[in-house]
């Protein structure tokens, strides 16, 4: 059973349509990327899922039914608009927000201490939030999101303001949560992080779902007539089926003629005695797909 089922939701603010008949599902044990350019409707979609906003039409099912007050304790949310009580001590602020997720004060206090140690913030626990660096505040937000061991985690730009070491730590943490069977919805503009972490994704543009599916499946569907070749010997000057050959990352990128398949090219190379070290169908990066889809409203070729 999917953790989240979004079915044809629409939300208007005055004349503007923020979300336009969007549908997707998110399963337990997966990291799902919610992508889209600024103002595409991602945050509104998340707020509808969380029942902060009501959809004008369509239905949302979360953890097996409509959102309830009890279910709020089973989800962790890191919003786009980051915020903590600036004038309150770090540990007090975290314990308070944890108690609002249904933990007892004693439980909250114990878990906060453990998380502060894991996120290397324990020595700063008596400082006011405003005295912490941006990276530290970001880690504190992540603690608020995860402290109550939620089944559903929705995080908006989880890596912003984090250095490479902390970014890696958060990635490991998200993978760990996924492996425990948690459902993670991640909003980010950092496409390389999505490529590294996400299992599936949905791309929203102008409120509409324009791309939806498994990451590799999408990349394959957007792959062109290109292959990357690394060879121990030089390529023949004349290569039937190749429209263009260009140097690419210490190897070659071969652009195939429209009627030629990668398999046919591989056969030609082997027949010509080229000693191959690597032969790979060139997949477009998610960045390239994102730009292509958003700027041209393109679809798989």
């Amino acid at each position: 059973m999917p953790t989240i089922e979004v079915e044809q939701i629409t939300k208007r603010f005055g004349q503007q349509i923020a979300v336009d008949h969007a549908s997707f599902t998110v399963d337990p044990g997966e990291i799902f990327a919610l992508l889209g350019p600024n103002g595409a409707g991602k945050t509104t979609a998340i707020r509808i899922i969380l029942d902060i906003f009501k959809a004008d039409s369509g239905t949302v099912t979360v953890l097996g039914g409509p959102m309830t007050e009890e279910k709020k304790d089973r989800l962790g949310y890191l919003p786009e608009e980051r915020g903590l009580y600036q004038d309150v001590q770090l540990d007090r602020s975290l314990v308070y927000l944890a108690t609002l997720k249904g933990l007892s004060a004693a439980d909250a206090s114990r878990k906060v201490d453990a998380m502060l140690k894991r996120f290397e913030l324990y020595d700063h626990r008596k400082k006011k939030i405003k005295e912490l660096s941006k990276g530290m505040q970001q880690k504190a937000q992540l603690i608020v999101t995860l402290i109550h061991d939620p089944e559903l985690i929705i995080i908006d730009e989880p890596f912003s303001a984090l250095d490479p070491v902390n970014t890696q730590m958060v990635k490991d943490l998200l993978r760990e949560e996924r492996d425990k069977g948690k459902c993670i919805v991640m909003c980010t503009h950092q496409m390389h992080q999505v490529e590294e972490l996400a299992d599936r994704l949905v791309l929203i543009n102008e409120g509409k779902v324009v791309l939806y599916g498994g990451l590799q499946e999408i990349r394959r569907s957007y792959s062109g007539q290109e292959v990357d070749v690394h060879a121990l010997t030089d390529l023949p000057a004349e290569l039937p089926g190749a429209a263009r050959v260009a140097k690419h990352n210490s190897g070659y990128r071969i652009h195939l003629e429209p009627s030629v398949t990668p398999q046919a090219l591989l056969q030609t190379l082997v027949e010509r005695g080229v000693q191959l070290e690597k032969f790979e169908i060139a997949l477009p990066t998610l960045d390239e797909i994102f730009i292509q889809v958003v700027t041209t409203a393109g679809s798989p070729q």
Binding site: L50, I52, E69, K72, D73, L75, Y77, P79, E81, R82, G83, L84, Y85, Q86, L97, L100, K101, V144
Partner: peptide
């Protein structure tokens, strides 16, 4: 103060 500190969204996903 809670609006300016942007805590409101976290609070609204925790209680009514």
């Amino acid at each position: 103060n809670e609006k300016q500190n942007r805590v409101m969204e976290i609070l609204l996903t925790s209680m009514t």
